[in-house]
Write a protein that binds this DNA or RNA. Sequence first.
RNA 1: GCGCCUGUAGCUCAGUGGUAGAGCAUCCGACUUUUAAUCGGAUGGCCGUUGGUUCAAUUCCAACCAGGCGCACCA
Length: 545
Amino acid sequence: MASAKNSKLAKSATTEVTERKLATEGTELVIIFRVSPFFRGVLRGSVFPRGIVFMSSQDEQLQQRQSNLAELGNLGIEIYPRRFDRRHTISQLVDAYGLRSHDELEAEKIETVTSGRILTIRSFGKANFLVLSDGRAKVQVYLRQDSLPPLDFQIFKLLDFGDWVGVEGHLFRTKTNEFTIWASRLHFLAKCLLPLPEKWHGLTDVEIRYRQRYLDLSVNPDSRRVFETRSRIVSAIREFMTARGYLEVETPMMQPIAGGAIARPFVTHHNALDMDLYLRVAPELYLKRLTIGGLEKVFEINRNFRNEGISTQHNPEFTMMEFYEAYADYHSLMAMTEEMIGAVARQAIGTDEVTFGDHQISLKAPYRRRSLRHAVAEEASERLGRQVDEKDLRDYWTVVKLARDLALPNYIPPAPGTGGAGRITMDLLERLCEGQLIEPTFVYDFPTEVSPLSKQKPDDPETVERFELYIGGFEVANAFSELNDPAEQRRRFEEQLKERARGDLEAHQMDEDYIRWTRITSERSSTACRRRPARDSASIVSSCC
RNA sequence: GCGCCUGUAGCUCAGUGGUAGAGCAUCCGACUUUUAAUCGGAUGGCCGUUGGUUCAAUUCCAACCAGGCGCACCA
């Protein structure tokens, strides 16, 4: 509350201050200043002590709602009630009785006690309608002055859009056939002090929807469905893995070396140890250590952090599932992955036929399989109208020429010495093919150059046993047979170090500990597969969280 | 990092070289079955910030700030 002293200061500071008095409850007086530009600048510069009340229109709405709350208190009711026992949720009411006819409801006179947030108030003096929502379903409430205790009707008159209330009454249908609760009691549960987004346009600003989830959840039922679907997907993946003997583990998120993926990390600092640590870009190397130690099948569902671009497709902190299995190779992984995705879809949304954008996609196994070089050569041949051979993709200068012929917008191939044929082939996959891989497709056999932790094919050292799964034009999984030759692993890390030295901040760092463990286990074999439930699976069925 | 776009009432948006308008929201009044209820009245704006041109700028120009989109990076 503004003190008299502050008022004086304000007046002497500007000639344009106008005052308006707004009586609130009791004896308090709020002074609202409508201020000149100069005065506002003074406010910002904190010349005045705190306590000056500057009111915008939104503040006035807050004031109004606070005043209504105070009035409710004056009625002698508890304005922050502790408990409300419902007989039904609104969803339960709608599910159980929402299709009953007018006559059925009249005959049954079903009594209910329920609660929800007020979405609309339509007032006709002595007859009034509320629409309440529990976030999933809505129901209309009919409040007649002569059907309610006088106190409850007074409560009604102090309600605002967004408040939470409890209602007792029986179910019926109005003249216009709307499923409605005829209220015999109205209970105040909680005040909404700030106005919710307006009802007609609703909350459509994507920016606000993501930054203020509570608002989105309050007014957009689809927002809740995304959360529910995501939760079911994660549960289904967990059940699928556990049922097959995989052990769920959690490995370090703060790592001295951010390894396991080609990505730029976030840096943080541990005070007691006085050392910088990286937020992990992948759990890979730690999961692999567990496999090496003898846990033959492990998985982890958790966050990873990548210090890169942000968009609807890229979240700096995203969830992914990663699993490792001894004695298996990447062919076993393809079979398991296609089985898992179909099973998870059936369990989470009840079908493995999904609509994604303009496409109908079947998630039922088996999925299409294409080697990477085959996929690129095929697409390039089609675009250029001439035969491109897979072996053209193994020579730097040939593939550079190919990339130039394709005239890809904004694409500059890496200069000699900063990336070879393998790197460019990967780029071509992403730019030529990725968006067209709508039907679930395994793209397999990757260039060794871009896969520092994968095992080479027995007859082809330029190629590793690795695949990526694409669905709906997005990469949803990446997997490979693990490299377990310590000498070769050291050579690969050294290659990565050279790339770092050339300025590639994403190239892998040397991880001596990892090599040491590889030595211990050089007679074993393991396999990694990754997929990302948070973004990709959710995006198959709806959108991301 | 580069390019494009936007900034006017709480929200969604009109508009003009002579300091502003609508609908919704809010407040007051009427109304005992409404569906964005309706009707009558009222409140609410440094027209993003700073500077320039001008007798006069919310409007024209410039810079800046904030936000968005696209590209690049990336999953």
